[in-house]
Amino acid sequence: MSYVLEINNLRTYFFTLRGVVRAVDGVSLKLRKGETLGIVGESGCGKSTLAWSMMKLVPPPGRIVSGSIKIDGIDITRMSESEIRRKIRWRKISMIFQGAMNALNPVYKVGEQIIEPLIIHGKMEKEKALSIAANLVKAVGLPEEILERYPHELSGGQKQRIVIAMAMAMEPDIIIADEPTTALDVVVQAQILNLMKKLHRERGISFILITHDLGVVTELSERIAVMYAGKIVEYASADEIFEKPLHPYTQALIRAVPRLKGDIHKLEYIPGTPPDLRRPPPGCRFYPRCPRRFEPCDKEEPPLQEVEKDHWVACWLHIRR
């Protein structure tokens, strides 16, 4: 089985004046070609840092401390910046950054912004780049004329489509989408998610969808990784995560979301707050808030183990020793 992405024991820390923040602290996951992955977690769990690590764009004072990230079998953590620019970034893996639609340059036409990477990275003539840009905007469901517009003339949904088109420009295998619909209204959100579905099906793009919204993640993801305090606590198919969640955190998260259909159950919440990632608790990081903690939890950290086929969980309740 070939993996398009293989992350092994990745650690990305931020070296701040007030201490070392262990934003991503030993994450491992594998993604098969053409699969879509959802990474869910609450604010501060490290999901965006994980995404930046995969692009090797962790902003200082953060850096990848250890571990490996293999894209198509090549470990990008050992590559030089110029090599990554030439071979990996935008070509193999690209990213839709959170809030990117508000980062479009207001003084350039949309078309000029889309062709920039094609000219710089793809070494193309302007005319050829423009014809590719025209195809790209059509692929994301916009009229060609939009290339002549400025960002302020576009609606939020249109801007987000442009950002997706830009991520697709160099035909990468993987596109990371960090909260791609968070600032959008539900109708526009549904349109954007439909578009991403279509691109996945028709072009085989592997999306990695990073979100805090359990509803949004089910729209696209075949596999789901649940993150808590810098670690993946559960990693399985979307069906298993929702029908048979094993980690108490995953279970609690699912029961905390109100539904639009069916009976109304009393919502549950998780008491307490996530730990300070400068001083994470010993043992399992969820232990202080866990309703099912028992003897080994505060002493030893549970590893992420495959407890059933393709179902990984990091919890002493399920780990076989």
Partner: peptide, 15 residues
Amino acid sequence: AAIPDPDPKNRIGYR
């Protein structure tokens, strides 16, 4: 119709 209720079956069709 636009609201994604958390259900893994959502990914099967277009909304």
